[in-house]
């Protein structure tokens, strides 16, 4: 993520320089300073129609990022602070018996929103987590035998704290792939940290954010990303990366074909976020660690973690 190659904008590029998408990205970057790559990833996940898991220490700005995203996207948004006493109904909603017309009325839970910020998801019990993860996967909620469709776009940003393992329920490996990307934010640079110290609280900046996009616009952008050109060499590169995970002896299993499709989709979205009109290997290369990391399970005996394996694969896969 060191260099960010940029193709000079060309005439006829889908997104004009001052497009709403650009403004939205710029707005979030205004709040989460010095982390443009993370912001790009977040928008990529959104435009690829997936969900984002942010895993980092408390205090580095997970929630701020999620809130900033929610704010610029417009539409409805909900924040759910997960706790260990939360029940699935607290997320999904409940059917309430209405005395006056003797009918059950469905009261939608916080999940019925365009953007859902699931804070500290690993604090909830597995049952509650499952309820959210299933809703994410299916785009709908079934309560008391009735199915309720979630709004579109539907974008879940979940955060979890990797170190505070006591009293938490880490997401099961098998369900981690409900999240398209998993990323962390990382500590700010020294200069940025200094700015944070002297400037007013970033959280106050959140209040200045305005919705730059709306639901219709996001859906249009998703469709636009899906139509982006992916050339044969890029597909070759994607295949080579996926193949390398399947051939790696340190892994329990390689990436599935579904993950391969997700990689193409996300690479397209990433290209759109960068205002390219076609997909570059850079897009794939930069997305891949965040897409593959949580989907791969290293064999315990290999002594490696998935991150180093993914890095090794990227460093050893030739770009056609």
């Amino acid at each position: 993520m060191s260099s960010r190659p940029e193709l000079s904008p060309t005439a006829g590029a889908e997104a004009p320089p001052d497009s709403d998408l650009e403004r939205a990205i710029a707005a979030v970057n205004g709040v989460i300073v010095d982390k443009p790559a993370v912001v790009e990833l977040a928008f990529s996940a959104l435009l690829a129609g997936g969900h984002l898991l942010i895993e980092d220490l408390p205090g580095v700005g997970k929630t701020t990022l999620a809130q900033a995203l929610s704010l610029v996207l417009g539409g409805s948004w909900q924040r759910v602070q997960f706790t260990n006493d939360m029940l699935p109904a607290d997320i999904l909603g409940v059917s309430v018996f209405r005395r006056q017309d003797e009918l059950f009325e469905f009261r939608p839970g916080p999940v019925f929103a365009n953007v859902v910020l699931a804070d500290e998801i690993n604090r909830a019990t597995p049952r509650t987590q499952s309820a959210l993860l299933e809703a994410m996967a299916e785009g709908q909620v079934t309560v008391d035998g009735k199915t309720h469709t979630l709004p579109r776009p539907f974008f879940v940003i979940a955060t979890q704290n990797p170190l505070d393992m006591a009293g938490t329920y880490p997401l099961p490996d098998s369900q981690l792939d409900r999240f398209l990307l998993r990323t962390s934010i990382g500590y700010p640079s020294a200069a940025e940290e200094r700015r944070l110290l002297v400037e007013p609280d970033r959280r106050q900046l959140l209040e200045t954010l305005q919705p730059e996009l709306d639901s219709q616009r996001v859906l249009a952008l998703v469709a636009q990303a899906e139509a982006l050109h992916v050339a044969e060499p890029v597909l070759d590169y994607i295949q080579a990366l996926i193949g390398a995970t399947r051939n790696h002896a340190g892994l329990r299993a390689g990436l599935s074909p579904r993950a391969a499709l997700a990689l193409i989709r996300t690479a397209r979205a990433h290209a759109l976020v960068r205002r390219q009109d076609f997909c570059l290997p850079e897009n794939v290369k930069q997305i891949f660690p965040f897409l593959a990391g949580h989907r791969l399970q290293p064999l315990p005996e290999s002594g490696l973690d998935s991150r180093s394996i993914v890095e090794e694969i990227v460093a050893n896969t030739a770009v056609p």
Binding site: S3, P5, L280, P281, E282, V314, A315, N316, T317, V319
Partner: peptide, 11 residues
């Protein structure tokens, strides 16, 4: 490097 993209190499 084989794993370098053209633009990374250009940089």
């Amino acid at each position: 490097h084989p794993a370098e993209t053209p633009l990374e190499f250009a940089a």
